[in-house]
Simulated assay, not measured.
Amino acid sequence: MSGAQTRDGVLDVPVIDITPFRIDAHGGARDAVAAAVDQAARTVGFMQIVGHGIPQQTLDAFTRATEAFFGQELSAKLAYRCPPGVNRGYSPPKSEALANSLGLVSTADLFEAFNVGAQASDFPGLDLSPTDYEENVWPDTPGFRPAVEDWFAAAGGVSRTMMRIVGRALDLGEEYFASSTDHSVDVLRMINYRLPSADVELEPDQVGMGAHTDYGIVTVLWADAVPGLEILDAEGRWHPAQPATGALLVNLGDALARWTNDQWISTMHRVAAPVVDGVLVPRRSAAFFHDGNVDAVIAPLPTCVDTEHPARYEPVTVGEHLRAKLAGSRGGALATVAQREVARLDPTGADPR
């Protein structure tokens, strides 16, 4: 089973400068970036991206806005809670269990979150279903909406740049995935790991966010410089991961692992409860999920299949794949379609090919 590789027990999350894909750089410079992404995708599934071009003031405004929202009383935030089947709005602490998306029974996760995403109304000529492209719910927190919309656009730009790099890295051309992502089901999840009471008693094996793989193509993650994120290696050991100053973490999701027939890794990860000296400390993050068009078909690419590497996955649409995963993490139903993903938690087990 594919998993993150270590060297002498150390997990290396490489730093990759994507500037050549934001400027009119020569092909050699772009090839070097694509090769670095390909190496990271095959060995760890995570990378630290610099040269992304997002202004500091955009991040500063965004973090102020999310801090103001999460700093409100729980009763105020609950006004923006949506039903479990709607991937928008506010999720209170302990209302989700990410490990359910793997079909695993687990303790509810500590985090609270607020989701916004691509809406059917953003693509007026496509007649998209509002069930897949839900309308956003916006709190009346001053400055929240413009700051979040700016970060959504900026992180979306990084994800689209990453898809051009992915196409080049797989020798498919920089525009190969454009037709599968031009109305992508993108979601920005703002996450807070501080419960209303810092001295709350943790349940046994309580985590900030349970073990999971991301569902879509690529995830663009900003996080505080606070310990918490952990990556599972191929031997079943958890390793802390923290982005370098100014870097965004990018990791691959299940859709890209399926497209590459597991040549690239959708890495299992979790967030440990951010506890220092026995007390929960503040930790914030924001994950932008670039998941692909709801009607795009995910199937192993012909270039990733041969007699020695037969196709490991049946074709599935992005919409079908996401609905099955979200029914677990947000709806409480244990997923039954994640055998290959959950096998990574038991590296000694058989490969469910």
Score class of each variant (00 low, 15 high):
Thr131Ile: 11
Ala169Asp: 10
Ala36Ser: 13
Val276Phe: 03
Asn115Thr: 06
Val86Met: 12
Leu126Gly: 01
Asp109Val: 00
Leu110Asp: 00
Gly228Lys: 06
Val337Ala: 13
Glu73Asp: 15
Asp224Gly: 08
Val13Met: 01
Ala198Cys: 04
Pro14Asp: 07
Gly71Ser: 15
Asn251Ser: 10
Phe123Met: 08
Asn115Cys: 11
Gly156Ala: 01
Pro282His: 12
Arg323Ser: 11
Thr336Gln: 14
Lys77Glu: 14
Thr131Ser: 14
His26Lys: 08
Thr307Ser: 08
Arg344Cys: 14
Ile54Tyr: 08
Ala343Cys: 13
Val294Asn: 02
Gly89Trp: 14
Thr213Arg: 07
Val166Trp: 11
Trp151Ala: 13
Val279Thr: 15
Gly216Val: 07
Pro142Phe: 00
Ala169Pro: 04
Asp254His: 04
Ser180Thr: 02
Gln119Gly: 13
Ala286Gly: 15
His26Gln: 00
Glu203Thr: 03
Leu98Trp: 12
Asp31Tyr: 06
Arg22Gln: 08
Gly45Arg: 01
Asp60His: 12
Ile16Ser: 12
Arg194Ile: 03
Pro14Trp: 10
Asp8Ala: 10
Asp132Ser: 07
Val226Trp: 14
Ser2Gly: 00
Val279Gln: 12
Gly319Glu: 04
Asn115Leu: 09
Asp109Arg: 00
Ala34Ile: 12
Leu170Phe: 08
Ala225Cys: 06
Ala223Asn: 05
Tyr80Ile: 02
Leu11Phe: 14
Arg283Gln: 03
Ser184His: 13
Ile18Asn: 10
Leu334Gly: 05
Gln48Asp: 05
Ala247Asp: 12
Ala324Thr: 10
Gly85Ser: 05
Asn192Phe: 07
Arg330Cys: 13
Ala287Leu: 01
Trp259Met: 15
Asp150Glu: 05
Gly156Pro: 01
Leu326Trp: 14
Ile231Val: 15
